[in-house]
Computed example of a mutant assay.
Amino acid sequence: MDGRPSVTETTVAEVMAELAGLEDPKARAVNEKHGDDHGVNLGELRALAKRLKTQQELACRLWETDDSAARLLAILICRPKAFGRAELDTMLREARTPKVHDWLVNYVVKKNPHAEELRPAWSADPDPVVAGAGWALTTERVAKNPEGLDLPALLDTIEADMKDAPDRLQWAMNHCLAQIGIEHTEHRTRAIGIGERLEVLKDYPTPPGCTSPFAPVWITEMVRRQHG
């Protein structure tokens, strides 16, 4: 070792400087309303990721910076299947902001071979943000691989717990409820009924042209599109 920084160290510094150059105060102000703390346009972030291509070591170093923009970039340039179960568990608990959390679950965990082991462990976690990640993995299975899932038991849990769940967990459980109703005809009436009784997200402000996240409306609209 001659004391010079390694290639990765230089690259981390270069990437952090580039991210700082992409910082936009207006974007940061909008993101902060959603609980995020980065000011980089996501289109520009994706363009940077495309240029860097897949670099697992660099991704890990960027994650360690604890900077949200760097972590989002790390998620885009990592190899999702390269992480061990314990690493993913640690990363999820370190993901402080909604966007980092969502991207980590959707772009990394769902593509990782440990996702199914983590799903029930996370769903039962006392931390509602971690539990929300478990429910997001369950929703993925409801849609793509429901074999072996106890859907009536999931509906029982949603019926009992969703109304009083913290926001992020409530949102994830509501998505699961809607997905069960959309994908599984035999449970649709019950899923809609649970949504109507609990009224979770019934008054959620929905922009024109978007579907309401209120489960009865969401289910009905998606089924209509499927058969339209």
Rank of each mutant, 00 (worst) to 15 (best):
M1G: 15
M1P: 12
D2C: 10
D2N: 15
D2W: 11
D2Q: 14
R4F: 14
R4W: 14
S6Q: 06
V7M: 13
V12G: 02
V12C: 02
V15G: 04
A17G: 09
E18D: 11
L19C: 03
L22A: 05
L22N: 06
K26T: 11
G35A: 08
G35M: 12
D36T: 12
G39N: 01
G39T: 02
V40H: 02
V40P: 07
V40W: 02
L42G: 01
R46V: 10
R46T: 06
A47V: 08
L48P: 02
L48G: 00
K53C: 08
Q56E: 13
E57K: 15
A59Q: 06
L62T: 06
W63Q: 03
D66Q: 15
D67E: 14
S68Y: 05
A69Y: 07
R71Q: 15
L76C: 12
L76S: 12
I77M: 04
C78H: 03
P80E: 00
K81W: 13
R85C: 08
R85H: 00
R85Y: 00
A86E: 15
E87G: 09
L88V: 07
T90P: 00
M91T: 07
M91N: 00
A95F: 06
R96A: 14
T97K: 10
W103G: 03
N106F: 12
Y107P: 00
Y107N: 13
H114G: 00
A115H: 09
E116W: 13
E117R: 15
E117V: 15
R119D: 04
R119Y: 03
P120S: 06
W122N: 08
W122I: 04
A124G: 09
P128S: 12
P128K: 12
G132S: 15
W135C: 04
E140A: 12
R141C: 06
V142D: 01
K144V: 09
P146V: 07
D150S: 08
A153W: 03
T157G: 10
E159H: 08
D161G: 03
A165L: 11
P166L: 13
D167C: 06
L169F: 05
L169W: 04
A172W: 06
M173W: 05
N174Q: 09
H175S: 12
L177A: 01
L177W: 04
H184Q: 07
E186G: 07
G195M: 13
L198S: 03
L201M: 14
K202W: 05
D203K: 10
D203R: 09
P208R: 10
P208C: 02
P208N: 07
T211Y: 07
S212M: 05
A215T: 03
P216Q: 03
V217H: 11
I219H: 01
E221H: 11
M222T: 07
M222G: 00
R225Y: 13
R225G: 04
G228N: 11
